[in-house]
Design a protein around this nucleic acid. Sequence first.
DNA 1: ACCCTGTGCGAGAACGTTTACAAGAACGAT
DNA 2: ATCGTTCTTGTAAACGTTCTCGCACAGGGT
Lengths: 362, 362
Amino acid sequence: MQDPSVRPTLATVAKLAGVSVASVSRVLNGMPASPEMESRVIDAVARTGYVPDAFARSLRARRTNQLALAVADVGNPVYVAMMRAIDASLRTTDYRLVLHSTEADLGAELDLLGTMRHGYVDGLILQSLRVGSELLAEITRLTIPTVVIGLLPDEVPIDNVRTDTRQGMRLAVEHLVATGRRRIALVNGPIDTVPGVARWTGFAEAMTAAGLDVDAAPVEVSADFTHVAGLEAVRRLLARTAPGAIDAIACSNDLIAMGALRALAEHGLRVPDDVAVTGMDDTDLAAMCNPPLSSVSTGAAERGATAARLLLERIEDPELPPRRCTVPPRLVVRESTAGGTSAASSGTRRPAEPAELMRGEP
Amino acid sequence: MQDPSVRPTLATVAKLAGVSVASVSRVLNGMPASPEMESRVIDAVARTGYVPDAFARSLRARRTNQLALAVADVGNPVYVAMMRAIDASLRTTDYRLVLHSTEADLGAELDLLGTMRHGYVDGLILQSLRVGSELLAEITRLTIPTVVIGLLPDEVPIDNVRTDTRQGMRLAVEHLVATGRRRIALVNGPIDTVPGVARWTGFAEAMTAAGLDVDAAPVEVSADFTHVAGLEAVRRLLARTAPGAIDAIACSNDLIAMGALRALAEHGLRVPDDVAVTGMDDTDLAAMCNPPLSSVSTGAAERGATAARLLLERIEDPELPPRRCTVPPRLVVRESTAGGTSAASSGTRRPAEPAELMRGEP
DNA sequence: ACCCTGTGCGAGAACGTTTACAAGAACGAT
DNA sequence: ATCGTTCTTGTAAACGTTCTCGCACAGGGT
């Protein structure tokens, strides 16, 4: 053991082992060496407590063994699920994942892309809510392999993993209609976001297809995709509409839906008896709500895993043509939409587990 | 503009500007230079699109401008709050925060501490559930400044930010007793964790102090501190106890409490009428639950901010004696414990906002 | 006119690795 | 014995910065 205040380097180890630094490096990197050499190096490494310096290695080898994941909001369980899936995909490789939360802020996102150019990481998975021209310009200027999770304009030559949330919202509304709801409200996220637009479109399409009047439908826009903003939005919605004017609320994601459940309880409205509620993303929160939340799965884990795969493939071969993967949405029905408006259910007090509950579950 | 496939270096810029690399470096680092020199360098940097290489810089300057935060579970909102606070504290500095989730796994934590020794970061904030001798040994071997969030043995000479969750659990139980509950159950997290032990101790103390029989109290241990595990634990608890045997459940954190709310609803039990529930951590989820969850705040944001401050101070001056900060717990009462057992409240259907609701809120 | 001090700048040496290259040893084939 | 061939090892040159020198020159005091 050496003085712990000064980190041992290859030279330290080499001197102790009586060999050259190159040989130490070779042994450590698993290149062929004589058994004699190996044992001397291994021994010296153990005695010095040597650990390679990440920066020197990266500088020389031109690879960092780090990948970055940027998500809009680490507080949203859907991104946690995504992160876990990516992390799992990376476990078999020797890449480390570093996580950045941009708080859905364009400035922070641009900032982040700026720091990417310092070469901190070998690749980037970017999940963004607001894919504007500014962001796209910055992404295409990036020299490192990048995969974007979320809807990207078709002509952009960047690997892209998406889910059809327009279709997802249609599934939700169709389900509400099928279970007898007619006075369906939409609580959307910000409409200057890609998901916000998609969900609005899907809602409008499904309503029209069901012969309902979209223009008359109550629509409220939440300040962001969090439960706090969702709660406030639904409070506004209930305040400005007549009692009984709404028998279902389709929410743009699970967090907003959770806020909706809270707001409805505040107003003394029963879910699903008085008002049905749907969420989206099918996060693990959905099953935990009171009542459990029907939600449209957007395949977060699958999207994460796919993004990781695409990124690794592109790092392997940068000449690959840009690829585009779509994960289909899937409706998961739970109690928050159980029964029709006239159903004489006793609500949340029954440990109800109708067969329907499991539909679409894995 | 140069060929974008080859990153410009200091040398590129220097050649274009007709000056030395040293001068470019000096200008870029804000050291004194003639106006003439400055403008030539600025211009050349702009024309080449030069961005400094993070690794070369770190290698030479022996600092990385990165700090690491390791938390047990990114899916737990309490850690998100902590992270946000740390992030905010770092915003005025030029440190970047890299986030690691250890999934409460000792192996992963040890792994992480191992990678720390590669010199990836200038400092570490570690939040761990299981602070055993193995982990402590590894931490003290670390050469970088480290702050631990969570209870550390007193003799360990490491900066430490803690909260007295034993006291916190006492607050919760005292509140339950004060509101008329007597048949109080504990749903704890794993007892081989530091928080698990603290909360058990606090529970036992408070029960004894209230003249209640701890040994007779139903105690269930959740597999971990997540809502899924909490739900299962409370299901077990309700399955093995007689109906009416429990009129309150003190939970070790908000996620477990959320699972408890769900399990109680499954069993047709009303909260708070039949059973009161308390959580801990006062995450933003607590106010969003149905009914809103009374919870003991453990000052996550404050702990995060304090940890960040301690870390920065130690980086500044490594010779500082080890410091220890304690954030007091604080009870936040919401509907899940409203009224006594005999209160004729109509439960969650009222938009109830008693004055008590706001007690302890900022 | 001289020396001293200060300032701006360039040359070049680190930082700790990886890796191209070459030198030498061992070995079988001629 | 000689000549490739292969295998092992050491030497030294990168990688892109920062930073210590020392040089040249300007300015002010004597």
